[in-house]
Structure formats: C-alpha cells, structure tokens
Design a protein around this nucleic acid. Structure first.
Length: 114
DNA sequence: CATCTGACGACCG
DNA sequence: GCGGTCGCCAGAT
C-alpha cells in the first residue's frame, strides 16, 4: 500500500490547524476508513517535513502512545495550538480541507458564463 | 495458514 | 466520560 497521497495531504495542513484521522480518511476516501489513516501515519517517514502531529483522533484526542504523545503535544503547542483536558481544541483549530486538497495546481474555472 | 496487533471510530452500558 | 466490543485491514509472528 502506498501512503503517498496521504502524506501529501497531511503536508498541506496549515500551520496551527489539525485534522482527525476520520476526516483524513474521508477526504481521501481511504478504504478501511480512519484506521487506514492511522496506519498511514504510523508509516510516516521521518525527516521529510511531514506534520504528522497535526493529525489527531476524534474530538482532538492524541492517540499515539508515549513517548511520541509528549512530542506531539510539544509540537502542537509550538504552533500555538491549545490543548485542553488532554485534547486539542478542535473548535478553534480544526482544518476543513477544500475537498481534495492534494492538487498540484488549482483548477482555474474562471469561466464566467457558460 | 492461524493469530495478534494496532497513531480509529461508532456503539453501548 | 470511561471502558469493552466490533468492523476494518495490512503487517508481523
């Protein structure tokens, strides 16, 4: 399984925003759902600038186990993302992907009349 | 080939 | 809100 599309997608999450595994799976239509998103993140190559820490569980919960959980909290905090009651404040930081953000160049679609 | 194991999430008690 | 079960599915044992 190639998780490349997932990595590219995650890479587009803006600084200071987060996404849930479920939303990620849904946006990319991953077979297997959220759990697939989780597997993809588990396979995240390090050193490629992929902001894996911006992916959290439903309702903002950090699901990865220690010692990475601490790192994730730290990284999130460094982006100004608040963590309340051990979970990210989704109300404030949830990112809503355009629909399919993995585009190389946006479709102009500037035709004003049809 | 049989089982177990998850960076999930919906459901239920 | 928390813990247990279940569906899901690719890898590891």
């Amino acid at each position: 399984m190639s998780w490349d599309p997932v990595f590219r997608f995650v890479q587009q999450i803006p600084r200071g925003r987060v996404l849930t595994y479920g939303a990620l799976a849904k946006a990319l239509r991953l077979p297997g759902g959220a759990r697939s998103a989780g597997r993809a993140m588990a396979a995240t190559p390090s050193g490629k600038g992929i902001p894996w820490h911006r992916v959290v569980g439903e309702r903002g919960k950090i699901l990865i186990r220690e010692p990475y959980a601490s790192l994730q909290r730290k990284l999130l905090a460094s982006e100004g993302i608040a963590i309340l009651e051990s979970r990210v404040d989704l109300k404030r930081h949830l990112w809503k992907p355009p629909k399919k953000s993995a585009r190389k160049h946006q479709t102009p679609k500037k035709r004003i009349h049809k």
